[in-house]
Each structure stands twice: as C-alpha cells, then as structure tokens.
Design a binder for these strands. Structure first.
Lengths: 249, 249
DNA sequence: ACATACCGGGTACCGTGTACGCAATAGCGC
DNA sequence: GCGCTATTGCGTACACGGTACCCGGTATGT
C-alpha cells in the first residue's frame, strides 16, 4: 500500500544497487519492434529477453508482468497520436479531426495497437496527454467537462471501432499465411451458399456490385468521421436556445 | 481443398459413423455460460470438456481449434442483435438506432463479446443475417450498396468502439479482484501526481468537477449515436442537389 | 456380415507466464 | 577504505494451455 502497485507510479531506477542494464523504454521499443514485424502473438517474455540480450527473468526487474509490457507498448505508441507542433488550427472541429486521423494513421502503422489499446484501461502519461490535448480543443465553447468528455469519447469510439474493424481482415490474412485471394475465395463461396437460400437479397446485390468499390477505406473512414463531427457541431450550434448536449431530460 | 476448411461450410454431422454425443450449439452454449460467469480467460478446452462431461480431445471432433470455439460463441451471441419481430419502424434512422441499442445491450450482457467480436472476422450466419437486416433498412433510399455499407459500418464502428471502451474498466476491475473504489483510488492518486506538474489543466478541472457527473454511460452512448445518425441523415437529405455521400471530388 | 468411416478420449509434447533462490554488484554510513 | 544491504541478473522449475497422435469402440453402407 505504498502506492507503487501502479506501473506509472513505480520509480524506474532506485538509488541503491547495481545499474540496470537497460530501461523500460528500451523494453517497450524492443516489444514494439517485434510486434510491428511479426505480430502481437510473437511477443513472449523469452523472445523479448533474447532480443535484448538478457535472461528471461531479468525482464521482471523492470516490469511485474507481461501485461505491464503491453501497457508500456500502448502508451509508447500513443505518443504518436499527438501532433508535433503546439496548436494546430484553432477550430475545435479541425482539431478533433486531426487527432482522429493521427490516431488512425498510428493504428494502421502498428496493427497490434488497436486491439491492445481497446482491451486495456488507458492510464499512461501519453494517454493522459492525449486526453488533455483533446479536452483543450473544446475549451472555451461553454461546455462542461462532462460534455467535453462525451464529445471526445464519441470521436475516439468511432475511430477505434472503425480502424480495429478494418484491421481484423488484414491481420487474419497475415496470421493464416494465406493470400488475400484465398481468403476472399473462401468467404465468397460461403456467402454464395447463403445467397442460394434466397434469404439474403442484399448480400446478393453486394456480391453483384462488388466489382466497383467507389470508396476506399480511408474515404469511408473520413465520411463517417465527418458526419459525426457534423452532428456534434450542429448540436453545439443549437445550444444557444436549448439547454445542452444532454437534450432536455 | 474440398471447401471444408471453413467452419461454416463444414457439415456438422456426417452420414457415417456413431452419433456425436453433443453438438456445436451445445459447445457454444457451454462456452458462453462459462465466459458469462467467469470471463473469457476462464475458457480452456479442458474446462469446456469437463463442463460437457467429455474428454478434452473430444472437442476437436466438433471444431478444429479453440479459435473456432470463439467464432461459434460470437456468432451465437450476435443472434441477440437481431430484433425478434419482422419489421421494426419503417424509418431507417429508427431501424439503425434500434440495431445499435440491441448490439450494445448484448455486449453489456456478455462482456466477453465486444473484444472477441472486434478481434476476429465476422463470418457466421448470424453476422450475415445482421448485415442483411441492416442493409435492408437502407434499401430504397437511392443509396448504392457501397454507400449503405458506409452508413452501417459507421454506426457499428461507433457502437463497438464505445461499448468496448466502456467495458474495459469494468472488466479490469473484475479481473484484478479489487473493488472499484480501490482502482479509482489508484488512478486518482496517479492523476494527481500528473496534475502536480501543472501541465494538465483540463485534467485538473476534470477531477474538480468529477463529483457531479451529469450523463450516465447510456446517455453518453445515446448522445454520440444520435449525433452520428443526425449527420448521416443530413448528408442524405443534401444528396438531392449534390452527387452523393462521397461529397464532391 | 463385414468393411468403412467416424466417435471418444488417454497420453504426450511443446510453448507459455512466472515464483523462487542464489551469486554478483554498487552505493551508503562509519 | 570497509563492510552492509538493497538491487540486479538469471538459471531452474512448475503449472497450465493448445493440440498432434493413436488406439479401441460403434454405427452405417454394401
């Protein structure tokens, strides 16, 4: 109960004793390298230790569990969400849009990030900076903190949900070692068998029109994101007369 | 290469040989029971076999891997997304809203569902029925299939992202065996230490206003969902003059 | 009736996270 | 400078997970 049960509160380097031969950051970087190259399932304590030229159990001097390694990875990667320069455009819509795109780009660059970030509480310093930045963009609009969190939460829910869903197919293909063609052929032949029952007219149209996809994944993402931002902005505009985003109630 | 490499195309019960002593559905139900009661990490082949009164390796007569068990679980649970009666309201906005709520309710009822569904390709028959139903709601509005998929994809991206994020805290609390108070206390004291640096004015306001949360999780969800649907509807209305959801370009 | 194709499940193997203990090391107080 | 002690590095060992393989029994088609 000394308050050190949390990874982020635990001091990395105590005063006494021999120098640690690497750092948490190095551990996180090594893990990210492995996951980027070979996927999340390639990450094991033995593997990381080997990559760092250390014994397996040595890692536990830096981290109390594998879970904490994953926490480190997430928070390290989340730093890439944040824009380099100070203030982007002054408009909050532009600001949130930029943040959303930055998050999406990062998750596509690190395909392991989306599932990992979605599955564990975000608590690290970079996650905190992200929240701070996002809330800061909504400051001065007359929103309460609670309402700001609702706005930001909605945008990130969409970004995470969309991007994670998009990555699933790609990852499944990579993991199974099949070509995209092979996987598609499988799905198609199965869907054909469903269509044959006559209960799936829309899926039927889907396969018939499948040749010409008008929108790329980026365009679809942008479209949904912009609609959501439209809706939020409209609701904010309507606030002058009414009482707030919560509606009446 | 006989086309049986896909779970959903593989016949469950071949003609010859002794009767199987249970079914895939029973396997899925048992797994869902375990996961509902003890969480996803309690699911192992040995455990499921024991619950079914079977030998561990017998499960592999019904399924080629644990992954397929998870696929069965997801598709079985996804059936609960679908409304019981035939046609809900005729309005597509009401239809999608209903579907979104049904998905949310189901994911809250089965806390293991959101991460699982998000992490694997949706291919089962109930997922197909879901897509069919959702697309059917958008039929007759002058949208192409591609555009309909964009609409539906946006809504489900939001629903999945929001609900999964919401479940993370609850699950982490359950898994760690701590009370919510203990976990909160940990977070709070850490956040306090960040605020002490002076770099997090918004987080500071957050903790100060934390006492009065105006919106429940359901209300936040509803708010974001309704804004997204607003945006989609407005864009559809604007289609008469312009060229389509893709905007100009 | 008999061959065949399937079922049940025991045994065994490998890979995983990690508890534990011991030797080596660096900073502190004298 | 000299021990004392907190800390590090890490080998060993264990429990637990998925699943390949194999054998003996059983229901169906000929």
């Amino acid at each position: 109960m000394t308050g050190h049960e949390n990874l982020w509160m635990r001091p990395e380097r105590p005063a006494r004793g021999p120098r640690p031969s690497f750092s948490r950051a190095a551990l996180a970087d090594a893990a990210i390298r492995v996951a980027d190259a070979e996927g999340l399932e390639a990450i094991s304590m033995r593997r990381l230790a080997a990559d760092l030229g250390a014994g397996t159990m040595s890692l536990y001097r830096y981290v109390t569990s594998k879970d904490e390694v994953l926490d480190l990875m997430v928070d390290t990667a989340v730093r890439e969400y944040l824009p380099e320069d100070q203030q982007p455009p002054g408009d909050w819509v532009e600001g949130l849009r930029l943040l959303a795109w930055q998050a999406r780009r990062t998750m596509l660059r690190h395909p392991w990030l989306a599932p990992l970030a979605a599955a564990r509480p975000q608590v690290g310093p970079n996650s905190a900076r992200l929240t701070e930045t996002a809330l800061g963009m909504l400051d001065g609009l007359g929103l309460s903190i609670d309402e700001m969190l609702t706005f930001v939460g909605a945008v990130f829910a969409y970004v995470n949900g969309y991007t994670q869903g998009e990555l699933v197919e790609a990852e499944a293909t990579r993991r199974s070692g099949m070509t995209l063609q092979q996987r598609l052929a499988q799905h198609i032949s199965y869907i054909q068998s469903l269509i044959a029952t006559g209960e799936f007219p829309m899926l039927d149209r889907m396969t018939k029109e499948a040749g010409r996809h008008f929108m790329s994944s980026d365009e679809r993402f942008a479209y949904g994101l912009d609609r959501l931002l439209d809706g939020l902005a409209a609701s904010l505009r309507a606030r002058g007369a009414a009482d707030g985003p919560a509606g009446s109630r």
